[in-house]
């Protein structure tokens, strides 16, 4: 398969994933060094504007896909990752591509209700003093 066809495939996967319920976005995926190169290219103004965020690698006749997603906090990350995997697999099957592996990584969970409740009424002044670390420090309980 040509590079152009792989690029089209990556674009299709990215669009499919973005449209999934619970997915808030697609992020930069890949290894740290890949990202460092990407960052360097961006800082130098060399980033290809047509680049996709999906990493697609060929292993002989099979394809390996890595995608990093954001998830809405009202949707479970596990369920959303499963749906993403299934959707990517469906795209590959539709193109008759053999699947070497699909890696889905949740990299951000977006709060759907970010409002902070009001502060409480203050307790007695002896409750705390600036810079105090509580005796015993750690309040620990099993979950």
């Amino acid at each position: 398969m040509s590079s152009a066809e792989d690029f089209d495939l990556a674009v299709e996967i990215e669009a499919t994933v973005r449209a999934l319920p619970g997915v808030t976005g697609v992020f930069q995926a890949g290894l740290t060094m890949t990202r460092v190169v990407e960052v360097g290219a961006r800082l130098l103004g060399l980033r290809d504007g047509a680049a996709t965020l999906v990493v697609l690698e060929r292993e002989s006749d099979a394809v390996r896909v890595s995608v990093a997603i954001g998830v809405d906090s009202s949707a479970g990350a596990v369920d959303t990752a499963r749906r993403t995997h299934a959707a990517v697999e469906a795209v590959l099957r539709a193109r008759a591509d053999a699947v070497a592996g699909i890696q889905v990584t949740v990299v951000h969970i977006e709060e759907s209700a970010p409002a902070r409740p009001p502060l409480p009424e203050p307790a007695a002044p002896s409750t705390g003093l600036p810079g105090v670390v509580l005796p015993g420090g750690i309040l620990s309980e099993p979950v």
């Binding site: 990752a81 699909i102 889905v104 990584t105 949740v106």
Partner: peptide
């Protein structure tokens, strides 16, 4: 063939 993960940062 299926690798689902989440970053420590997330």
């Amino acid at each position: 063939g299926r690798d689902l993960g989440i970053t420590e940062g997330a």
